[in-house]
Design a protein around this nucleic acid. Structure first.
Lengths: 199, 199
DNA sequence: CACGTTCCATACTATCCAGTATGGTAAATG
DNA sequence: CATTTACCATACTGGATAGTATGGAACGTG
């Protein structure tokens, strides 16, 4: 019996992500995905039982890649505040330049409203992202580099702002041009420090 | 020749919005829309030439309603800062409770990525919203109730945060519960005042 | 070498739905 | 009253595509 099945399965997920992120999930059909992976629809169904299962795999691919890249950024520094800045810069960067990521996430958001499982998966991902940022903020506080009363709440606001910029930038690109990247990062840091000030 | 055509045209747009906002644009078919308005698909096509044209009408319906409600809030006060708070409260309120609005806008965002005209229409809407807020912030500044160096930039950040909260709340409802409404409004006001502080 | 298993291809079905073709009815108009 | 026009219904077409039925090749195993 020949081997190597898991390779094709993950290749299909990777190709699916690329196509979904380029053209939108709903306007990509399974023939395209299979063709991109060098097979046909018939064999696609040997690896996945439905398009929805494929979408889950594509999401998982996206999660993993984001976390890998974020961890790589963190590993490049020892200082907690610098680490926080690095991850923020990475997040903003992907918001500014990675059109594919925006297309994919926007489509997933729309599908999430109708599909409980997709929504739950994405919520779990958001949770890990939140905890990652909370950890960094906490560390920066312990290091006397930041003063934040409620890190979790502060991070929630900051993440919301990132998502909002990402989304509004689709309509008003001028609010988020590459040369504003550093100013945006600093603005986000300011939000972390300020949102939970006494009302 | 009988009259009253424009009534059915706008009724179709209204019904389309309701259905789109409940089930998502792409999972609503024209038979449903026509039935909701008390006609059939055949006569639908007498009023609109395509589903896309209907979507534009549904968007226009959404724009108009939002602006009417916002203006109504403003009219209830004379004080610029209070007016700003009112509109913010209305925006947050619709983010907290109006699930339909969230479904509709999320779907429109997804479609915008593939459709230039939809995107352009929404960009125009965002522009009027921005100018409305900028005007209020400016007035509050002139009235010595706020100190903002660059109102347009501050409003951009604040609007981004609203959108981000709206979106993240779909996955993490706890970041945006009704009892946090006032705190959220105050947090947004703080962002207006703080984002353009010197770096 | 027979045989089962893995992996893939071809060809088909079934369904959904946007859009069209066509005809009917009632009111206004000359 | 005849005719036109506005508005609506019924019934159909065409295209796209998710999923299935089926068969075949290659490879390991007894």
């Amino acid at each position: 019996m020949p081997v190597c099945a898991p390779q094709m399965r993950s290749k299909l997920a990777r190709c699916a992500y690329k196509l979904f992120a380029k053209k939108g999930i709903r306007s990509v059909n399974l023939d395209e995905v299979a063709a991109a992976a060098g097979v046909t629809k018939g064999s696609f169904y040997w690896h996945y039982k439905s398009k929805k299962e494929l979408l889950h795999a594509a999401c998982a691919y996206y999660y993993r890649r984001w976390q890998q890249r974020a961890r790589a950024e963190i590993a490049r520094d020892d200082d907690p505040l610098k680490q926080l800045e690095r991850v923020l810069r990475f997040s903003v960067q992907s918001c500014l330049f990675d059109r594919e990521s925006r297309v994919f996430t926007t489509e997933v958001f729309a599908l999430s409203l109708q599909d409980k499982e997709i929504r739950a998966g994405w919520a779990r991902f958001y949770d890990t992202v939140r905890e990652l940022f909370v950890g960094l903020v906490q560390a920066a506080c312990d290091n006397d580099q930041l003063q934040v009363v409620d890190p979790r709440r502060a991070v929630d606001w900051m993440l919301a702002t990132i998502e909002g910029i990402k989304q509004r930038a689709a309509f008003e690109p001028e609010i988020c041009t590459p040369d504003q990247r550093e100013a945006t990062v600093q603005g986000l840091l300011r939000i972390v420090g300020l949102v939970d000030a006494p009302t």
